[in-house]
Each structure stands twice: as structure tokens, then as C-alpha cells.
Simulated assay, not measured.
Amino acid sequence: MTSVSLLGPGDEPIVLGVTTPATPVRVPTTRRYLMCPPEYFTVEYAINPWMDPTQPISTSLAVQQWTDLKDTYERLGHKVDLIEPQPGLPDMVFSANSGTVIDGQVLGSRFRAEQRAAEADHFRRWFLANGYTNVVMPERTNEAEGDFTWTGKYLLAGTGFRTDPLAHSEAQEVLGVPVISLQLVDPRYYHLDVALFVLADDLVAYYPEAFSPGSQRVLRRLFPDAVIATAEDAECLGLNAVSDGRHVVLPVEATHLAEEVAKRGFEPVFVDISELRKSGGGPKCCTMELRD
């Protein structure tokens, strides 16, 4: 029986949990991500409960935190591609909202908020310029990996605040994968990716209270061994995390969630996303996975 620890932001040791001989050995897989530098990041409108245009924003701090996130991915052995940010699109940094890619098939996005609508076409052009030939732009509103989460077997699809329920069947037709609809009920957790993330294979972490009672039952049936997050985990956007099958990149405040995933054999990797969180985003929001 051994404890799992790593260094926190001040280089102090943090004990995150205890593993036992029965704890699975987690194996990372190399991922490819698409990210957008937050060169024009600010909060000049409010389209979710996290956004307050009256509060001060530091674009330079957002750039520093984003760069640390990108460097973390590359240090872990992952490949990061970049898309050029565009003036007037401060939320373009949240690249996860602009495309869902499975087996090289791309389903683009259609934003609900007019302030973000132009982002979709910039990403469409990036896909076409970078060798993707199967690119479909949706007829129904969907905010891509914000509400579409690929488990390797199912596409979990959120609705309730942003993505049109009819976009779920459209995703199934375009991507050719089974889709499971989940209803979100708490406006703070307006996208699926701030209420649930995939750790590995058939294991997820999620915050039950973000979902309708029926969706909670679906999640319990599909993932009986899931990591159950607390309100505190959710409130720091701890579930807006990224796992490569071993390493779990998550906000530095999510210490309870980190301890829980460490007990399952994962290695938490903390990042500071406090400035980006002012727009309702975290590590996953900044990270579109390119599954070629």
C-alpha cells in the first residue's frame, strides 16, 4: 500500500490518496490537441453565470495560464496544434466548442450565442487547410466538445442550455457512433464538459446534481464505478479536466477530486486556470481533441 503525492504550486508535497495492490495500472496514450492562444481574451459580455463584464480581466495572465497548460500537454508527450486567434472573438480560446473529431470525421459547431457564431467558420477553414476532408457543418445548434464527450464507445451528449436535443441525432448520423443524451439542469454547468469528464475507457467522473434525475440513473447504469464529484469539485470547474488515460490535468483548486482520481491509479497534474475561469472555462474548454 503506497501513498500518491506530487508537488503543488509552491513545491510543497501534496498527498493525494492511497493506492493498493488492487489499484489498476493506468497507461497513458499520446493525444493530439487543437488549441487557440487567448491573445484577445476578455469578458465583454455575459452568456453564462460565470461571466461578469464589470470585473477586471488580465489578458496577459490568461496568456500565461494558457501557455502553462499547453506546455503541460507537451511535457506529457502530447502534440498540440494551434489555430490563429481572431480579434473580436475573445472566447475563441475555448477551442473545444468548435469541433468534434472521431476517426478523422469532423462535425463542426453552430453556436447558440451570436457573440461566438463567427468562431465556427474559422475552425472549419482550419480543418480544411490541415488535411481534413470529411468536415460537416451542422444544421442544428451544437457546441461541439462542450456538450459532446467521446468515451471510446459512446458519445455522451448534453443538452439543456446550449446544444439542441436534435443535434444529438445529427451527431450520430455524421459521426456514426452511438449517442446517449443527458439532460443538464444547473445553469452553472451549462455544458457537459463542466459536469463530467472521461478518465479512461468505461470510467468517468461527474457531478450528479448537474443532471436531471433520469440522466443520473442513466449515468449510474453506464458507469457504476464512476468517480462522484462534490459541489466543491464542480464549483472550481474541477470536472473541466483532461485525461490521457493516466495523467489527469485539472484546476489546482480541485484537490478533493484529485485525491479521488489518484485512488483509482491516475496521476493528477494541477494547472492554474483562474483567469480563464472568469469566462466559465478550464483546461478542457481550451482543448479540442483531434482523434484521427
Rank of each mutant, 00 (worst) to 15 (best):
P9Y: 14
I14V: 15
I14A: 12
L16I: 08
V18S: 05
T19I: 14
T19G: 03
P21I: 02
T23E: 10
R26L: 06
V27R: 12
T30K: 15
R32H: 11
Y33G: 00
Y33D: 00
L34R: 01
P38L: 13
P38K: 10
E39H: 04
T42G: 14
V43K: 01
V43E: 06
I47F: 11
P49W: 04
M51H: 08
D52I: 13
T54N: 10
T54C: 06
P56G: 10
I57M: 08
I57V: 15
A62F: 03
V63A: 10
T67Y: 04
T67H: 13
T67L: 11
D68W: 03
L69D: 04
T72Y: 04
Y73C: 07
Y73G: 02
H78V: 04
V80R: 01
D81S: 13
G88E: 10
L89P: 01
V93I: 14
D103H: 10
G108C: 09
G108I: 05
S109V: 02
R110Q: 12
R110V: 06
Q115E: 13
E119L: 03
H122A: 07
H122T: 09
R124E: 14
R124I: 01
R125D: 12
W126K: 02
L128N: 10
G131A: 06
T133F: 00
N134T: 12
V135D: 13
E139C: 03
R140V: 02
A144V: 03
E145S: 09
G152H: 12
G152D: 11
K153D: 15
L155G: 07
T159K: 11
T159G: 10
G160Q: 02
F161A: 09
P165S: 05
H168Y: 06
E170G: 09
A171E: 01
Q172N: 12
Q172F: 04
Q172R: 14
V174T: 08
V174A: 07
V177Y: 01
V179D: 07
L182N: 07
L182E: 01
D186W: 01
D186Q: 14
R188D: 15
Y190R: 12
H191D: 08
L192Y: 00
L192G: 03
D193H: 10
A195D: 05
F197I: 01
F197L: 08
F197D: 01
V198R: 14
V198A: 09
V198Q: 13
D202T: 07
L203M: 13
V204D: 05
P208S: 10
P208G: 12
S212C: 08
G214C: 00
L219H: 08
R220S: 15
R220Y: 02
L222D: 11
D225A: 14
A226K: 10
A229K: 05
D233R: 02
A234I: 02
C236A: 13
L237N: 09
L239C: 09
N240A: 07
A241K: 07
V242D: 06
E253K: 13
A254C: 10
A262R: 04
F266I: 03
E267R: 13
E267Y: 06
P268I: 11
V269M: 03
F270N: 04
S274I: 04
E275H: 09
L276N: 05
K278V: 00
S279D: 11
G281M: 04
G281R: 02
K284P: 02
K284L: 12
C285R: 03
C285F: 03
C286P: 00
T287L: 00
